[in-house]
Structure formats: structure tokens, C-alpha cells
Computed example of a mutant assay.
Amino acid sequence: MNAIKKYLGIVWMALAAAVAYYSYEIFGGKFATGKQEDLVFAIIIFFVLLPLIVSGLAIFGWYSFKNEYED
């Protein structure tokens, strides 16, 4: 079971990197449109939601990889 947790920890960390990359690719164009509603949406995504999501996935993956959830 611990081996599965380690592998899934790597999967969660890879998922965090993938979410960061694809969010940048998808929502990155919102900054350049010139519309105010797109700019506000992009700022909320990039500076509020994206750091929370990516850091949560990465921390969970790191702890799972290091067997912190063993107890």
C-alpha cells in the first residue's frame, strides 16, 4: 500500500504541474484581449485560484511521496 501511495504522490505532483501549464495556456490569452471582464477574470484565476489549486496538489503529492500519511 505504501508503494501505491508513493506512485500516486508522483501522479499528484505531475498533475499540479500539468494544471499550472494548461491553465497558463488556456487563460493566458485573457490578459491580452483588452476587455475589462476578461482582465478581472484572468487576475482572479492567476493570482487567487491557480496558486491555491497548484500548491494544494503539490503539497498533497509531496506528503504522499514522503509517506507522511503513514500513521
Rank of each mutant, 00 (worst) to 15 (best):
M1Q: 01
N2F: 00
N2L: 10
I4F: 11
I4E: 05
K6S: 02
Y7Q: 02
L8P: 00
G9H: 01
I10A: 15
V11I: 11
W12L: 14
A14F: 11
A14M: 14
A16N: 05
A16K: 06
A16I: 06
V19I: 14
V19Q: 02
V19K: 01
V19G: 01
V19S: 03
V19T: 12
Y22W: 14
S23P: 01
Y24Q: 13
E25P: 00
F27G: 07
G28H: 06
F31K: 02
A32V: 08
K35W: 11
Q36W: 13
Q36F: 12
D38V: 11
D38M: 12
L39S: 08
L39K: 08
L39T: 14
V40S: 10
A42E: 03
I43N: 10
I44R: 08
I45V: 14
I45G: 03
F46W: 02
L50F: 03
P51I: 03
I53G: 00
V54E: 05
V54T: 13
S55C: 11
S55W: 14
L57F: 15
A58H: 12
A58K: 03
I59H: 02
I59M: 12
G61M: 10
G61E: 08
W62D: 01
F65Q: 05
K66A: 15
K66S: 04
N67D: 15
D71K: 13
